[in-house]
Design a protein around this nucleic acid. Sequence first.
DNA 1: TGACTGAATTATGAATTCATTATTACGGTT
DNA 2: AACCGTAATAATGAATTCATAATTCAGTCA
Lengths: 228, 228
Amino acid sequence: MALTEILNRPTLHEELVERLRALVVDDTLKPGEKIAEAQLCEAFGVSRTPLREALKVLASEGLVVLQANRGARVTEITAEELAEVFPVIAALEQLAGELAAERLDDAAIAAIQARHDEMIAAFRKGDRKSYFEANQDIHGALVEGAANAVLSAQHRTLATRIRRARFMVNLSEARWSEAIEEHERMMELLHARRGSELGQLMKTHMMNKFAAHLRALEEGASADSVIS
Amino acid sequence: MALTEILNRPTLHEELVERLRALVVDDTLKPGEKIAEAQLCEAFGVSRTPLREALKVLASEGLVVLQANRGARVTEITAEELAEVFPVIAALEQLAGELAAERLDDAAIAAIQARHDEMIAAFRKGDRKSYFEANQDIHGALVEGAANAVLSAQHRTLATRIRRARFMVNLSEARWSEAIEEHERMMELLHARRGSELGQLMKTHMMNKFAAHLRALEEGASADSVIS
DNA sequence: TGACTGAATTATGAATTCATTATTACGGTT
DNA sequence: AACCGTAATAATGAATTCATAATTCAGTCA
């Protein structure tokens, strides 16, 4: 019903943060693109004040860059950017793996296993979109499984920054099957609750993903390999 | 001279972010304290708009909490909070250690060694203040040595959140000398450029620090053991 | 006396206005 | 025709104003 809706109504700027973030992530606002305040205010039907507050927050998350008197731009995705974000995400996922193996209960692990199986099915069908979604869910569930709100928040922020890169790269079949194998081992280690090893694997898994992204970026620099 | 000053003049809200952060870190604004906008505006001589923008950023960093229509409060430091932040910082420092051992040149390592020696001297004299400062510098230098801006930024944000805890706890002599030993080993591993081991040690060093904080918090709950 | 109601006050959220800086467009000069 | 400088325009930074929600406090009644 509407009562709780009204009570939980977030402030305008919070809502704008989410909606702007979504626009950046789904590539409606493109990297490097200038953000016209007036235009967005028009689109959202709000005044500049809450919109500008939202931009400040997005800037502190690294999703947009602000230049005094020169407005806001969507942060560009460069190889250098990825080279800085991926290792940090990898470190966070290592921690997530260590903690999740300790803290997830059997039911939660079973749920992750189920999503893992769906991911495998998507892989067999060559369904990249379903694969990506299941993959995100699994990593997300492992991070949440660590039961550490700070870890979750940091991970989410950084994951958002690189999620946009999926619009730019088309991973090779070879890397894809390699990733699948890594995920199979991750599930084994999770069931066995070998947290230290799971963390280690999740870290290298993420760094392998990074390497694949770099390769795809270099190849795709000329060839247009946009997917999804 | 003033020319570059003027050119680099930050926007008001950026300056306010820094100054408010300083107030929170040095405990002028106390945990749980309500932040009166009008009062701060008066103190800084600015209008509410840039101040509120700054509060939004500080909230996204986790330093203050905002409640719709109910203003801002300084985030409380609880054992739960520390239990979430420390493991993440530890993971980041592990990464920092790995990278710093690879990337720091000999001169930079020598500079860290010098600061380390000063820290030892402060320890011998029982000068806690100098010790803490040198300690911060060393950890900061190692993080910077990783040459990863994202890592630096995340670390700085989280370090800020727990730095306030130093006002609350007085570490035991036993833990202090243990920490010194860990730092000695860190320097050895850094000189030997054994990044993996350095990272591992920095992680456990940080978790040991956390455990000491927890013990001090429990003891200090009744006894007033505020230092510095 | 103490708890409750409701008006008065205060503080916050958001829109608007004002001031200043960047950007663009135009015209003159070489 | 290309370049420079200046004026016009547009966009941003910050202050102010307005609307609304929360808090305070006086007064009432049990």
